[in-house]
Amino acid sequence: MTQFQTEQPLAHATSTEPVIVARDVEKWYDNGFHVLKGVSMTVYKGEVLVVMGPSGSGKSTFIRTFNALEPYQKGSIEVDGITISHDLKNIEAIRREVGMVFQQFNLFPHLTVLQNVTLAPIWVRRWPKAKAQEVAMQLLERVGILEQAHKFPGQLSGGQQQRVAIARSLAMQPKVMLFDEPTSALDPEMVREVLDVMRGLAKSGMTMVCVTHEVGFAREVADRVVLMDGGYLIEENTPQEFFGNPREDRTQKFLSQIL
């Protein structure tokens, strides 16, 4: 299996200023499994990059290396100009700039929706409480949860919880947002409300990396789509080409399985 190389930079929606630069990232799990076998990828400012691939391809693990939730053994990752190292201060600095939305929402169940959103700005950004709450209320309005601000996460539906999770990440005003299969744990009728929020976010110019199986979303919103399989990055293409005229056989096979 050869690793895919871009011959020439693809056209990007907004800029050529890189936010995340991953070079030949390799990772082994503790049990010795070689999950990432040298993956390189650049995320540019303002673009929406969709990562697809079969389960076990390493796509979630890969984007989780961007905010050092997963350590890697070889290669380098640069986020917003800072190279990820083992230094805790450095990792915390990077995490402040990278928002992440999880498959299982991971809201803090013992805090209200508003407290979930204001927690990090107050404790990490050191904002005064009033400012954090004001920003939080704006964000909650943007994701359509304003009326539920004083409820606990357990009282909300899955779709509402995921929208709160997006607001919680946005409250830190990150430079890039990572979405790790944000709709996979949702009932079908709730997928749409979450994707709508993500669409709005993309339109606002947020840099986004989304691991998702939502082909419609990828077609419509993505600037680039990449396919990962078996720890390699197989293909990187525009959505039109990726879904219409894929370059690699593996992509074709993958698309035939999911479409």
């Binding site: 939730l69 915390e92 990278v98 992440m100 809201l107 803090f108 927690l119 990090a120 990490v124 990440s169």
Partner: peptide
């Protein structure tokens, strides 16, 4: 993970 990803 959620707490750490927020920079706490």
């Amino acid at each position: 993970e959620a707490a750490m990803s927020l920079g706490l």
